[in-house]
């Protein structure tokens, strides 16, 4: 069904305009447990949430709180121990091109050129060589990297590689874009540029984005909605609407509203960290 959607969408039309009605994520009483017995670790516990089509949602939390695990359950890499994940009403069983994935680690195929990396999804979906190339070119234009189309990933900077990674995920016209700390490995300046560039892409694409990060500023700058996650066991402790005007620029970081939100998020996270810290001390 998803493959059909890829085939029928007119690239030009989908890119510019036309709101995407797809991309509804329903997480229904999901628990994810790793290991057994003494080593048992509940990464996600009894979590339920709904993410609407076209929403930009950030999952914010400290390292190891299970936010990536939750994302991976939507991607289909991790099977919930109980509960279920639905995307557009379909039960998630395994990874599929309707859910594009961007990783923190560089994940471009190093033996393929930038163009061939982007064209990989369309090629797998059975598009002809010419179609693949035209899709790849469309996305190269979009991310502003048309001049490096024939380079190999190893020749690109980290920021450029991640931009190509985003384009590669979008080239399948996914209804959901899943991003697992995609800018975590980048330096601070590149990071800010990438955030703006992601918002630009998203405004054209209007796909649902589920974005995992531990950076409060990043979450506020990007999201419509921030889900704060606590650790051991991982669960969502706050659901904050970010009603800042779009389009946003990095100047946003100095405004009153931004700082209010930041304070709110930080105090929630701090509370969590303190609690985690004290339980850790008790345990040892």
């Amino acid at each position: 069904m998803q493959a059909n959607a890829v085939n029928t969408v007119n690239p030009e039309k989908a890119l510019f305009g036309e709101r995407n009605e797809k991309g509804l994520i329903e997480i229904d009483k999901v628990s994810i447990v790793f290991g057994e017995g003494a080593k048992k670790n509940t990464a996600v516990e009894q979590t339920s949430l709904t993410i609407l089509p076209g929403e930009f949602v950030c999952i914010l939390g400290p390292s190891g709180c299970g936010k990536s695990t939750l994302l991976n359950s939507v991607a289909g890499y991790v099977k919930p121990s109980s509960g279920r994940v639905l995307v557009d009403g379909t039960l998630v069983k395994k990874p599929a091109p309707d859910r594009g994935m961007v990783f923190q680690q560089y994940s471009l195929f190093p033996w393929k050129t930038v163009r061939d990396n982007i064209a990989f999804g369309p090629k797998i979906a059975g598009h002809s060589q010419a179609e693949c190339e035209s899709i790849a070119n469309t996305f190269l234009q979009m991310i502003g990297l048309a001049t490096i189309a024939d380079k190999l990933p190893g020749e690109l900077s980290g920021g450029m590689q991640q931009r190509v990674g985003i384009a590669r995920a979008l080239a399948n016209y996914p209804s959901v874009l899943l991003m697992d700390e995609p800018f975590g490995a980048l330096d601070a300046q590149t990071r800010l540029i990438m955030q703006e560039s992601l918002l630009n892409i998203w405004s054209e694409f209007s796909t649902t984005v589920l974005f995992v990060t531990h950076d409060v500023d990043e979450a506020i700058f990007l999201a419509d909605r921030i889900l704060i996650m606590s650790s051991s066991p991982g669960s969502i402790i706050a659901d904050i609407q970010v009603k800042l005007e779009r389009p946003r620029s990095q100047d946003l970081g100095t405004t009153e509203a931004f700082n209010e939100l930041k304070k709110q998020c930080l105090s929630l996270i701090r509370e969590q960290s303190m609690r985690a810290f004290s339980t850790q001390n008790q345990a040892s």
Binding site: F120, N172, L178
Partner: peptide, 23 residues
């Protein structure tokens, strides 16, 4: 073979055989 490359290929729709061949 880096696991992340296999995962990337999976999320791009590649089958087991395609992952084998392309990744």
């Amino acid at each position: 073979t880096p696991e992340v490359l296999i995962r990337a290929a999976q999320s791009l729709g590649a089958s087991k055989l395609q992952i084998f061949w392309h990744v």
